[in-house]
Design a protein around this nucleic acid. Structure first.
Lengths: 153, 153
DNA sequence: AGCTAAATCACCCAAACGAATGAAAGAAAC
DNA sequence: GTTTCTTTCATTCGTTTGGGTGATTTAGCT
């Protein structure tokens, strides 16, 4: 890590220096290139525009991920209690819901198993089915999605 | 402490990016302007590059949350309220809160790491500290507790 | 100038978790 | 009475997570 950190900083400093250098070069070039202003301005405009596009894309791409897709967002603005057993029509069984509730409370598979008097294998099976029905891959995702769907809490 | 360190590195990274960018621009200017005006290609190149820069910037600025003073925009699309800074007197740092928020959205350590531009090791460290401060053992527990404490959402 | 806290990253190891199967018994549906 | 669904459990295998420990850097405080 020692060498690595140093190397990383060297690279960054080099990048900065290079940036400054090239800036100066680019600037000084203007002294000789009087004609190219149109091109420069054009490129600048495009650059600025696409920075905007990039930022937009970046923002869009970073945060959400959660509630879209199959789902449904019953109440767009006012989140009453729009998600009762109606939304269980994802085909979630009662037993699966029990597991889901325990899940949301932060219990481990083993704890859930003992609470429901089954084996951990069974819990894992229920969870797998739940993940498929909720279209998620991890327990934390499942909790988040179930909550946003109003399945729990 | 948070913002400064991050900001300093941001400057360096920006320097690097700028250096690369200007290099490519200079290089492309050479080829296209000497040979012939392949203006479209040039503009396309610039556009693509700046989209990349924009995405990078967008990603970078979508994450940061500052807790010490006032809160600053945790998530652009899905607004989780960083909430009662009063309860931050569990000693939860701003960076830890960022991780916590990502956690609650069901992201894996690796995803969180990439969103916050750190290594998974760092994420794990933050999580460990978080668990200790929240007095929990698992991520699902952490989410549940943080929610009940009003730290998130 | 020294101290402290925050943030970063690394390495190791063990436990928990998840995917992909297969299987079996009982209830409900047809 | 065969089909379908639910619930149950198992095994294997690979991935993820978490604990423990230590290190470095930077910023802020005294």
């Amino acid at each position: 890590m020692t060498g690595k950190a140093v190397k990383a900083r060297m690279v960054l400093l080099y990048g900065l220096a290079l940036g400054c250098l090239l800036s100066v070069m680019a600037w000084s070039r203007y002294r000789f290139m009087v004609i190219d202003h149109a091109l420069e301005a054009y490129v600048l405009l495009v650059a600025v525009l696409f920075v905007g596009v990039g930022i937009w894309v970046g923002l869009r791409w970073s945060a959400p991920v959660v509630v879209e897709k199959t789902v449904v967002r019953p109440a767009p603005v006012v989140p009453l209690q729009p998600a009762p057993e109606a939304l269980e029509q994802l085909g979630i069984s009662s037993r699966e819901l029990e597991v889901l509730i325990q899940l949301a409370q932060g219990y481990s598979n083993e704890e859930i198993a003992s609470h429901l008097f089954v084996s951990t294998n069974t819990v894992k099976t229920h969870l797998s089915n739940l993940y498929a029905k909720l279209d998620v891959k991890r327990r934390t995702q499942a909790v988040d999605k179930a909550r946003s769907l109003g399945l729990i809490r």
